[in-house]
């Protein structure tokens, strides 16, 4: 049974990477300026979450310019590049704009949801995304667990040992994908952000 689950997870991961690599879905990102903000948000999806996803027919695909990688021990690590924003992580205000997007597919129902215009809202501590065809951002993921923030040499960082599905995001995804898989507070993995504001 555990071997089956592991295979499912590995298959799911492979699908994610393959689809991402072939995806032509272009997500509108802001054109970087010469003095643009830089950095990244790295979301690590744990193997536990990946297994649960696979068993429920859920696939999450990072869209360009997000950069996914898979490790059998740590799970899928997706790097979202910083594209702008004026957030101040140690002061808990502002926003950080992220490139790329997220595609959620329910393989059992064939339903999907795509989010673009990803942000990390520093004031609310949420990763939000705007559904394709919509205008209002949906809170998707919340840092949780042991979180540390810092600022050194102009670079702001946030690391959180846990990353959880936001209740609003869970409700949106469950409705859109016709599943009951997503739950508010569901642990996804972990988060690491580094951000250098534009100068």
């Amino acid at each position: 049974m555990s071997r089956t689950r592991a295979r499912l997870a590995a298959t799911s991961a492979a699908v994610v990477l393959a689809v991402t690599g072939m995806s032509g879905a272009a997500v509108a990102d802001a054109a970087p300026a010469a003095t643009a903000a830089t950095g990244s948000a790295v979301v690590t999806s744990s193997t536990t979450f990946l297994k649960d996803q696979a068993l429920n027919g859920i696939v999450v695909i990072p869209l360009p310019t997000a950069d996914p990688a898979y490790d059998s021990t740590t799970g899928i690590t997706t790097t979202f590049p910083v594209t702008g924003g004026s957030g101040d992580l140690p002061a808990y205000y502002g926003d950080i704009d992220l490139g790329g997007g997220l595609l959620f597919i329910n393989l059992f129902t064939g339903k999907s949801a795509t989010f673009k215009q990803l942000h990390f809202s520093v004031g609310n501590w949420q990763i939000t995304g705007v559904p394709v065809g919509g205008t209002s951002p949906v809170a998707l993921l919340d840092p949780a667990g042991d979180s540390q923030v810092s600022r050194a040499n102009g670079v702001q960082t946030l690391t959180s040992t846990d990353l959880q599905v936001d209740p609003a995001g869970a409700q949106y995804l469950d409705t859109k994908l016709k599943t009951s898989f997503f739950k508010g507070g569901q642990s996804v993995g972990s988060l690491a952000i580094n951000f250098t504001p534009a100068s």
């Binding site: 501590w125 042991d146 923030v149």
Partner: peptide, 12 residues
């Protein structure tokens, strides 16, 4: 108040 997840976060 801070966002719930931010409360108790640390820095040095």
């Amino acid at each position: 108040t801070l966002p719930l997840a931010a409360c108790g976060s640390s820095t040095h």
